[in-house]
């Protein structure tokens, strides 16, 4: 136990570095991707392909003054961006990037990630509340209802996968999907369950990830045409930077979970490709999912708050509950 704790501390440091690097370069990827979709070149001046843009942006953000609006709750105002980063970094600790690359595998890995993910919405609440800004306030109310609404179908869908795997251990879940692409949880053909509804639960899970990470089309918390910038209206400099990084770190976590639960983690899609290290496949799947996030963001308009809640309560929750019962029945029968 004592050694593992040290491991965890080291892992947290690595996780922070990984999260920060990812966040920085995902901003670059997002801007380049958006530009390509809109037939622009995007940032291409600083360094080759504009690769120096993120560090320069970071320097600019850090050089700026952190302003705190008058009448704001100073302690919470400063604490909120940190709280936004915290759960994402904690979650990195338990994610298995390949058979061997994992900081601390826990037998309750799934639970760990959802436990910390659920704290993320509190950061938005505190940011919105402490800013003493009406837009930020409305945004945090939205963020809370959104978090409550989408945590439920997400957890139910995860339970479906956990039931199929019979374990909450992330590595165990991935191991069971080894073989070929047809053994992955998303495809019901050769997988563990033969559950025909798995593609649907993948879609549900993916939608919930989009909503939980406040990404378009569910970015109601920061809907800029209504709430200016939502909960981070009053944030500048690194406070804003931390929120930004937290958002991208959350996207990475969400995509990691989707990869692990549905896309076979580090497993190669075809058995003869197994000579390539698992980390390659994991990162490939991860970045493909993130690219989809970016792709979706620059394609769709934003939903409304009631449309969002209707989608969750009227479509996703009933479907995921049905899926849960169906899976339970299948497991009982076979």
């Amino acid at each position: 136990m004592s050694l593992t704790l040290l491991n965890v501390i080291v892992a947290v440091v690595i996780a922070i570095a990984f999260a920060a690097l990812n966040a920085a370069y995902l901003v670059w990827a997002e801007r380049r991707g958006a530009a390509r979709i809109q037939r622009r070149p995007g940032p291409n001046i600083n360094g080759p392909f504009g690769l120096l843009q993120p560090p320069l942006d970071g320097i600019k953000l850090m050089a700026k003054q952190l302003t705190i609006p008058g009448g704001a709750d100073k302690v919470l105002f400063i604490a909120a961006p940190v709280l936004a980063m915290f759960p994402a970094i904690m979650s990195f600790v338990t994610i298995p990037f390949s058979e061997s690359i994992v900081a601390k595998n826990m037998n309750v890995g799934v639970l760990m990630i959802f436990a910390f993910a659920s704290t993320g919405s509190m950061a938005l609440v505190f940011a919105g509340w402490s800013s003493r800004n009406k837009y930020a306030m409305m945004s945090s109310v939205r963020a809370v209802s959104q978090a409550v609404a989408y945590e439920i179908p997400m957890l139910i869908t995860t339970i479906t996968v956990v039931m199929i795997a019979g374990s909450t251990d992330l590595m165990e879940i991935v191991r069971q999907q080894s073989g070929s692409i047809l053994h992955w949880n998303i495809f019901p053909v050769l997988g563990n369950s033969h559950n025909l509804l798995m593609p649907m639960s993948f879609l549900i899970f993916f939608t919930c990830t989009l909503a939980e990470t406040n990404r378009a089309p569910f970015d109601l918390g920061e809907a800029e045409s209504e709430l200016v910038a939502g909960f981070h209206t009053e944030y500048g400099s690194m406070g804003f930077g931390l929120f930004f990084m937290g958002e991208y770190a959350n996207i990475v976590i969400g995509s990691c979970m989707t990869t692990i639960l549905f896309l076979g983690g580090w497993n190669a899609p075809l058995p003869f490709l197994g000579f390539i290290p698992g980390i390659f496949w994991f990162l490939l799947k991860l970045y493909l999912l993130i690219a989809t996030f970016i792709w979706i963001r620059w394609t769709f308009p934003r939903t409304t708050i009631y449309g969002l809640l209707n989608l969750s309560w009227k479509i996703l929750i009933p479907l995921s509950l049905f899926n849960l019962l169906f899976t339970a029945g299948l497991i009982k029968v076979f």
């Binding site: 959802f114 704290t119 919405s121 509190m122």
Partner: peptide, 15 residues
Amino acid sequence: QVLIYVGAVSVTISF
């Protein structure tokens, strides 16, 4: 504890 108290109870209270 984290999941229920932080994720659910605190969110409800702040709501």
